[in-house]
């Protein structure tokens, strides 16, 4: 456990700094933008797809579990990323028309 801590020191620092960064970045968002911002953030956490791609790419051809679940995971991750960004864009497009 402690060896794990020392191995991942840098990442733990990144986590701490990112937490504060996330809070600062969002800080003063007007309430009309709450939903688009949520949607945009939703698309960004689609980075999890990178993990799915790695799983898929490392799967040996005889490992059916990794192949099927990895395949499914990449599809779901892509849905999250692509769908998320497109939906956000459509929401923001609507904003412009209102003005």
């Amino acid at each position: 456990m402690f060896s794990w801590l020392s191995l991942h020191q840098e990442m733990i620092y990144i986590v701490i700094l990112s937490v504060f960064l996330g809070i600062e970045v969002i800080g003063r968002v007007p309430s009309v933008l709450h939903t688009p911002l949520m949607s945009g953030a939703n698309a960004i956490h689609g980075v999890v797809i990178i993990g799915a791609i790695i799983v898929m790419g490392k799967a040996e051809s005889n490992n059916l579990l990794a192949l099927t679940l990895g395949f499914l995971a990449v599809i779901l991750g892509t849905l999250n990323v692509v769908g998320g960004f497109v939906v956000t864009d459509r929401m923001l497009e609507m904003f412009k028309k209102k003005k």
Partner: peptide, 15 residues
């Protein structure tokens, strides 16, 4: 993945 995830995690909580 780490920065993207944590950013959304903290920004999402504040949001």
């Amino acid at each position: 993945m780490l920065t993207g995830g944590i950013l959304v995690g903290s920004a999402g909580t504040i949001l």
